[in-house]
């Protein structure tokens, strides 16, 4: 009898001796390895997008706009914290303190995810006449299509990689892990596209980048849990 050490497979006739005979050395899943993998993939995708679309004007000359730095940092931080929270669910334990840490991490993730939409709303209402004109152009779907497409495709690749990593572990909260995986993939995917994105409007970022992250989160919630059950 062969009993695979991983997801999948069906319950088979049982004997402890069979399990012992089937033992092979395993490397414990380590969150830092998972985060490193996600960051490396994000970097790779950023480079690929830069080759394909180019990079923001001025970036090559070292001209870092504050809004660009803030956007990229916020998206990377959102991706990193979400990925950490998702990957911590792959190492289960009945532990009240650990549960509190996981809950706190999830709240931090939600707080971070809401930064740009809230800023965009404040900006929009604080400078209504100008931002209204700006918004008409910004809400034109043709403007945001590229952001959604590239952020979404990047998120798909990163989310798939995180899901494969999570399947090595033993996720006992698949729904929560699905949300967090989607948010992580959305954050990293949008960060990868951010290197190219020439738009610096807070309303634009609050609309299209938020939408890209939100769509990735919903997709994660819908698709990932069934892949993580064991």
């Amino acid at each position: 009898m062969t009993i695979s050490q991983g997801n999948g497979g069906t319950t088979q006739p049982f004997s402890i001796d069979d399990l012992v005979a089937d033992l092979t050395p395993v490397n414990p899943v380590r969150i830092r390895d998972g985060i490193a993998m996600a960051l490396a993939l994000t970097l790779f995708i950023s480079v690929a997008i830069s080759f394909y679309l180019g990079i923001r004007s001025g970036l090559a000359a070292g001209n870092f706009e504050t809004i660009f730095v803030a956007r990229t940092f916020a998206l990377l931080a959102l991706g990193g914290v979400s990925a950490y929270a998702a990957m911590s669910l792959a190492r289960p334990a009945v532990d009240t303190n650990l549960r509190k840490v996981e809950t706190t991490a999830s709240r931090i993730v939600l707080g971070m995810a809401s930064v740009f939409p809230i800023l965009a709303l404040i900006y929009f209402f604080a400078d209504m006449p100008r931002s209204s004109v700006e918004a008409v152009a910004i809400f034109d779907p043709s403007i945001g299509r590229e952001c959604l497409t590239y952020s979404g495709l990047s998120a798909l690749a990163i989310g798939s990689a995180i899901t494969v990593w999570l399947r090595r572990g033993a996720v006992v909260s698949p729904e929560r892990a699905g949300w967090l995986t989607g948010l992580a993939a959305g954050g990293f995917g949008a960060a990868a596209y951010s290197l190219f994105c020439p738009m610096d409007s807070v309303v634009y970022i609050g609309t299209w980048f938020t939408m890209a992250v939100a769509m990735a989160a919903v997709a994660g919630r819908l698709v990932v849990p069934s892949l993580l059950r064991w």
Partner: peptide, 20 residues
């Protein structure tokens, strides 16, 4: 026990075993 066998790599040796 079969789940324990399949999920051996999800145990972190720096943490207590029984909660896992």
């Amino acid at each position: 026990l079969i789940s324990v066998h399949r999920k051996l790599s999800s145990y972190d040796p720096s943490r207590p075993f029984l909660p896992w």
